[in-house]
Design a protein around this nucleic acid. Structure first.
Lengths: 257, 257
DNA sequence: TCAAAAGTGTTCTAACTACACCCATGG
DNA sequence: CCATGGGTGTAGTTAGAACACTTTTGA
């Protein structure tokens, strides 16, 4: 007799196709309403939020696994993605996948053991354009939503630690690489870009110095258009000069923030 | 009948105690004769060099695995160690552990399959004091030696890529963290420290500017002693002020190189 | 006494900081 | 017509680059 699959997944297949003990977790950053947001999932089985994650196929790289997970959760391909750490505490395991919690939720499986095993997880962080994301929960989750970075409370397992490390890594990266292209819409104003930087860095920057510094990198182009409909002088719109932007990604920037 | 163990390892035990598919590889840097060195192993089974590596125990973190490997290869505990990347190309596998190569070398085992499986490897880099290391080959290797970073030719599998990535990561780290404490003996002269920086960065630095910049961090103490026995003015000896050094590790430095 | 390499100081420039003034826009 | 916030400019400060002279040492 065929196995019950109340949550829409063939776990026997999963087990046969994925590496044991290894998963990926993604910290997906977006920027909206002058706030840094992160994509989170709420478990079907326990009352906790977690990062989007998944298993690694037997013939996949971890990057491919993360890309696949992100495609599923956001609908986006071609995502800016960076591996930043592997979390390997032997005690880390997903309580949302623990036999007792899944049974409590009425899930029937024969191979709880595989899901309940020890997992080491490779942390990735992704930068995406908020408005392009269509958040989709996975089979273990009831919802998938953006949360403001400051509103995030406790997360499942060590996911809070993973989130913090991702933030720290992104802040460091900001020192020597331009980011923003992946987080902002095609056109944006200088104050918007500044807000993004301030949000990531967690401190205010001088408006004029910021503008001068950013422009000195020569990675963005001012457009003749302006942002209209504001009760003050209309700011110019800019967009990244992709060629120079990518060159700067390779060469690195010089400044400190 | 008990299994033949011509290379001194019980592989059944290894398999039962280690995670499948996962290994660690360490890029161990040392500094000697004004040269950056890296610790390499020469395989018993094929004519290739590789990085020190090992498997991950079922209840170990990857950090613990790397620490264990380094203890075995160098004799040192308390090593400065940094995880920097996970290498997960599904095609990567160790030719020195491939059945045909081990059989050719006369090794008799029943579970070649385990050794020949796909491995994902977590890359670590370590900074050690050259003179304190007592290089010890592992069971798969005939020798363990220091090689000048510029003399390293081809390495086994993707180890060359791992080495390059380690170097790149260390150079980046040099931008915002002091290193040197782990690579130099307790007392050293300013020109020696400068040579180390020049070697890591791969370019020459101005003697006077270097001294001023390093001293401005206030992480080292000038000793009343000088290095004698040189046919020129005797340079002062310095040592790191551990308290301030560690604080700087946490806070980060400001300068660019 | 000389070559080699260390100690120390100055000048110039570029980058960052901290401000001030004017301008456009919607309410 | 005014509050809000954007566009631009300038002076002061600090960090880095380039460079010169003096000192100590063993051979």
């Amino acid at each position: 007799m065929s196995k019950t699959k109340p949550i829409g997944v063939n776990f026997e297949e999963l087990e046969s196709q994925c590496l044991p003990h290894l998963s990926v977790d993604c910290v997906v950053f977006g920027f909206h309403d002058n706030q840094l947001k992160v994509l989170l999932l709420k478990s079907k089985f326990i009352d906790e939020w977690s990062l989007p994650g998944g298993f690694v196929g037997k013939t996949e790289t971890v990057e491919e696994a993360a890309t696949r997970v992100l495609k599923e959760r956001t609908g986006l391909g071609e995502i800016f993605l960076n591996q930043f750490h592997i979390f390997s505490d032997p005690k880390r395991s997903n309580p949302g996948l623990k036999p007792e919690n899944m049974k409590k939720a009425g899930v029937k499986l024969t191979n709880y053991e595989w899901l309940g095993q020890r997992f080491l997880s490779v942390g990735f962080y992704a930068l995406v354009e908020f408005s392009k994301v269509d958040p989709q929960p996975d089979v273990f989750s009831q919802t998938c939503e953006w949360k403001g970075i400051d509103e995030v409370e406790t997360l499942m397992m060590d996911h809070r630690q993973i989130l913090d490390k991702a933030l720290e890594t992104m802040r460091l990266q900001l020192r020597y690489q331009p980011i923003g292209y992946n987080l902002l819409p095609e056109k944006y104003t200088m104050p918007e870009l500044q807000k993004l930087y301030e949000t990531i860095l967690g401190r205010e920057l001088d408006r004029r110095n910021f503008q001068r510094k950013i422009l000195s990198y020569k990675i963005l182009k001012r457009l003749p258009e302006r942002r209209l409909g504001v009760a003050h002088k209309a700011p110019y719109l800019y967009r990244f000069d992709l060629e120079k932007y990518n060159q700067a990604l390779l060469d690195g920037l010089s400044g400190d923030w």
